[in-house]
Amino acid sequence: MQPSEQEFAELFSASWARLFRLAFAVSGDRAAAEDDLQNAFAKVYAQWGRVHRADHPEAYVRRMVLNEVLGGRRTGFLKRERPHAQVEPPGAVASPERSVVDRDAIWAAVRALPARQRAVVVLRYYEDLSEAEIADALGCSRGTVKSQASAAIAALRRTAPDLVREEP
């Protein structure tokens, strides 16, 4: 294995699991997420010099993964099964613990969001990125991030009316 391949393999191993969860969260489809992630890493390898020189290689790779996932949404999104808020999520049973049910409902609502809104939510609340970082990751303006986030929160609030928007 050449030095660049060794470094690539190390990055791959270190970031695969987290990026798979991100890809899955945004795509909503395990198989599509795996395919998109493999494709994204192929592009990472093909552009290894550029990735390696980036100030934040992990952020660069994350952006490539999101490009791949969201690029595939144009066709993939229509194919995938989209959970509906009124459909009982798999494994959800009547529970005396309201918060558990709420979380399942919220998760279903997150998955029902449009892809870009879902990406903003996942990057904000799972990856814990700032607005500027989200804008960079998605290749859009901070204003677009704000508007997508507002729309997403408004949609989620229909499921959980007491969801409060915190300013980043």
């Binding site: 391949e5 791959f12 191993s13 798979f20 969260a25 992630l37 493999q38 890493f41 192929a42 390898y45």
Partner: peptide, 21 residues
């Protein structure tokens, strides 16, 4: 997301595809 079963990735496949690209 923490409970998601993560499939094993294949870095060699990525390298092979990356070389083509």
């Amino acid at each position: 997301l923490g409970g998601v079963d993560v499939p094993p990735g294949d870095p060699l496949l990525a390298i092979a595809r990356g070389r083509r690209r």
